[in-house]
Amino acid sequence: MSASADPLSAAVEALRSAGCVFAEEEARLLCAAARTPDELADLVRRRSAGLPLEVLLGWAQFCGVRVAVDPGVFVPRQRTAYLVEQAVARARAGAVVLDLCCGTGALGLAIAASLGRLELHACDLEPAAVACARRNLAPIGGRVYAGDLYQPLPATLRGRVEVLVANAPYVPTEAIALMPAEARDHEPRLALDGGPDGLDVQRRVAADAPRWLAPGGSLLIETGPGQATQTAEAVAEAGLDTRITHSPRLGCTVVVGELPASQR
């Protein structure tokens, strides 16, 4: 990046040359984050090398909320705002909400921002994600557990969850190599790899969901459009009333499963 050029223009040029699609917007954010010209040059260099913008900034804007993002943690995708919309439509103020495979805790944070007071629980297997989620959710009273899906949750939560959201990994193992480098090289494999057909973790989420859902409670799983039928089959096999919903605007597909109100 040329030291003699206007810093913003030089940053835009460098980022555009590196293939950043939103070079102008990213350059403005990096310029605002940098305290010195040398720091800006370092940020632009690291972004040009493929480090996620959100990691460089230390935050992501998601559903109108600023979410802290640490290195080595799955970065919230803007399409997942549709999962939040679907969850909010099924929840109420004071609801018991559970976010599995929570990453930064962005889903729970966004749901709480829309609904206000919640009993919010979240869980992830990655230590870096657990630490990041605790930083995001502790100020709003959210509890974050470290462990594999339902395993670390308190037994007192069984049968009480009104809304269960899961942005579990759903990329087929062989497709990981085709992902953008900023995800493939800088996000934990555990947060991306869903097994041979991408649905290994989703099946486990669906199978045990009825034990944790309250009567009439909802399970919402983000999935790929080409995988939605199989995801829905797994949810239906767990005994939930199932449907597939899709947002063309955000390019996101969500499978919704509801526990019948008469079932316990």
Rank of each mutant, 00 (worst) to 15 (best):
L220N: 08
E126S: 13
Q202P: 00
V67A: 02
R211I: 08
L219K: 10
S114T: 07
N167W: 08
G141R: 00
A129C: 02
Q227K: 02
A175I: 10
N136E: 05
S218D: 07
D208P: 01
R45N: 09
L178D: 12
R79K: 09
Y170P: 12
D99F: 10
R211L: 15
V12Y: 04
R92F: 10
E39A: 15
D200C: 07
P215L: 10
L115P: 00
L199Q: 09
A113R: 13
T223H: 03
G239A: 07
R135D: 05
V255F: 04
R46M: 12
G147D: 04
A206K: 05
P169E: 04
D99V: 11
D38Q: 15
P169G: 09
V255A: 09
E258L: 00
P188Q: 04
V84T: 11
A68M: 08
L30V: 12
D124R: 04
D38P: 02
R264I: 12
C123S: 09
L178R: 14
L40D: 10
G224S: 10
A60L: 03
P37I: 07
V144P: 07
C31R: 06
L120V: 07
S218L: 01
A191K: 03
V65W: 01
Y150H: 04
Q227L: 12
E26Q: 07
E237G: 06
L213N: 11
A10T: 06
P169Y: 06
S262Y: 10
Q230D: 12
A95K: 05
R46K: 14
E174K: 11
H186Q: 00
R211F: 11
V163D: 01
T80M: 09
P76F: 00
A181I: 09
E162A: 10
R66T: 13
R77L: 15
I111Y: 08
G251P: 12
W212I: 02
L57W: 07
S262N: 06
C252Q: 09
W59P: 06
A32E: 13
G50R: 09
A234M: 15
G64F: 07
G72C: 12
G58L: 09
R134A: 03
V235L: 05
V235Q: 06
V73I: 03
P260K: 01
E162K: 11
R90W: 03
A122P: 07
D241L: 14
C20Y: 12
A32H: 04
